[in-house]
Design a protein around this nucleic acid. Structure first.
Length: 517
DNA sequence: CTGGGGAGGGGGCCC
DNA sequence: CGGGCCCCCTCCCCA
């Protein structure tokens, strides 16, 4: 019995031990699981925090955008305002910003409506980015913009990371991001415009020189990228942030902007950042002056009226590619090549056509330019490149040597070469290099036809069209073929007709006609 | 092919 | 000096 008791006792103790061991195991398992679970919870919480933070950042961004839209409907304009100068612009284009076409359209989305109107809301961030891009020189401006709402350090960091970097960023680097817009020619132009603006602020008159500088900058930056694209350039300029607060506008241009809301879609971003900036109308007439003239063509998102760009004809339409093309065309031209603005700019010598470059490099180029200008002057005296006039034309276009009697005229004229089109229609995507052209264009939308024929009910939006029309009544045919007796009322008609003589249409008109000379 | 109109580009002039 | 406007040129489209 005693043995039995002992045995039971031992069993009990063994069981107890086992039980304890089991409990310990269980506890251990529980603890382990709990630890794991806890770890998971911790991780989840971290994730939640991260996501929440991101959400906050996004909200901040959104809020900021809204604030900019509402508080500063024209913020874009302001930003866009001359940061620098070109065409593009565009991007170009502080004042000028508008001018250049984005070559690598990549920056531009093909589907992007180029409308200048409001609406599309660009995000502040985008704006900032663009600005920053533009602004290389303008640094400070960018900060101003940012200052608006940067509560969240991260947020600000996000944005700023972009901006500051952009500022120092080489525009020629690869594109493909929103920021790329800045690389567009327009952006370039804008920055250029900014440069101009700066020069002006510094007391330097916007002489052709500034243009050179701008131009140079462009070539330096974007031209390259544009070229790469091989697409028609789109001119978009974007001004740099630094000019954000600036109200300067390009001389000679009156911002007749129709846009009331600068901040709109991507296009707006583009435009605003690129071109508009410098071109917003001080008067606030409503005409948007900033965007770059861009034309959508097929897949090339930002084609700058590539089809219309005829640098050779002096009508580049703000296309970076045009710009490039122009540059190319210049090279082979002995008269112009030597003083190609691109070269001059490349050296970045702030030398005006009338001033000597600071460094030897620039000096050479500059001298060349001067020589060219001298030639131009001679030509002018001989009725050459200069536009007629009794006034002395002391200012010459660095691109074509055309002479003008004041630097502002040169600046405006050079937009033709650079592709800067600071004046944009708020009702369509059309852009213009001169305010007046925009004004005339808007008659298309308003239906205004102030010029009416005294002999019929016809009325026209342009005086020249009326004059041409009146030939119908007078029977006048001012265009006569020098090789035959035919006369035409339309110059184009004569032009087409002349092909008969030149043989261009020989295949259609056998020379048996006797017109062949 | 011709006639005619729409519209943009750009230089010059005037205020 | 700068802006507004005029004028001309040119291209494009349509009937």
């Amino acid at each position: 019995m005693a043995n039995c008791i002992v045995f039971h006792t031992q069993i009990a103790s063994v069981l107890e031990v086992l039980a304890n061991a089991a409990v310990a195991d269980i506890c251990k398992l529980v603890d382990d699981d709990y630890a794991v679970f806890r770890l998971e919870i911790t991780q989840s919480q971290k994730e939640n925090r991260t996501l929440r933070r991101k959400l906050q950042l996004l909200e901040l961004k959104v809020a900021r955008e809204r604030a900019e839209r509402t508080i500063r409907p024209s913020s874009v304009k302001i930003l866009d305002r001359y940061r620098g100068m070109a065409r593009g612009d565009g991007n170009l284009t502080g004042g000028h910003r508008s001018f250049v076409k984005p070559a690598r359209h990549n920056t531009w989305r093909g589907d992007q409506p180029i409308n200048v109107d409001e609406g599309s809301g660009t995000s502040a961030q985008n704006v900032i980015v663009i600005e920053s891009a533009d602004t290389e020189a303008a640094g400070p401006g960018v900060k101003q913009e940012r200052s608006e709402g940067e509560e969240d350090p991260q947020h600000s960091s996000d944005i700023q990371t972009g901006a500051p970097h952009i500022v120092t960023e080489d525009l020629t680097t690869t594109p493909a991001q929103p920021r790329d817009i800045s690389r567009t020619p327009n952006a370039v132009l804008k920055s250029e415009t900014e440069t101009l603006t700066r020069l002006r602020r510094l007391g330097c008159p916007p002489t052709p020189r500034s243009e050179y500088l701008l131009y140079g900058n462009q070539s330096h930056r974007t031209v390259l990228s544009h070229r790469d694209s091989g697409d028609a350039l789109q001119t978009g300029n974007d001004p740099t942030c630094s000019y954000a607060t600036e109200t300067e506008k390009i001389p000679g241009d009156v911002p007749v902007g129709l846009d009331t809301n600068p901040i709109r879609g991507d296009w707006n971003l583009y435009s605003s950042s690129v071109y508009s900036e410098g071109f917003l109308d001080k008067k606030g007439d409503g005409l948007v002056v900033d965007e770059v003239t861009v034309k959508e063509e097929g897949d090339d998102p930002l084609t700058w009226n590539a089809d219309q760009t005829h640098l050779g004809e002096g009508q580049s339409q703000g296309n970076t590619s045009d710009f490039l093309d122009y540059r190319e065309s210049l090279e082979p031209n002995p008269n112009i090549a030597t003083h190609s603005p691109l070269h001059a700019l490349r050296d970045r010598n702030p030398v005006s056509t009338s001033m000597a470059p600071s460094d030897s490099h620039g000096r050479i180029l500059f001298d060349q330019v001067l020589n060219s200008n001298d030639k131009a002057r001679v030509q002018a005296g001989e009725g050459g490149a200069t536009s007629g006039g009794t006034k002395e034309k002391r200012f010459f276009c660095m691109f074509c040597n055309k002479g003008f009697n004041c630097p502002q005229k040169v600046e405006i004229h050079q937009r033709v070469h650079v592709g800067v089109k600071p004046f944009s229609c708020s009702q369509c995507q059309m852009r213009f290099s001169q305010a007046w052209n925009l004004k005339i264009h808007q008659r298309v939308h308003t239906g205004e036809k102030p010029y009416s024929c005294s002999q019929c009910h016809m009325s026209f939006a342009q005086t020249c069209n009326l004059k041409r029309h009146q030939r119908v009544h007078t029977g006048e045919k001012p265009y006569s073929c020098p090789q035959c007796e035919k006369r035409f009322s339309h110059q184009h008609q004569l032009k087409m007709h002349l092909k008969v003589h030149t043989g261009e249409r020989a295949q259609y008109y056998p020379q048996t006609s006797g017109h062949e000379s």
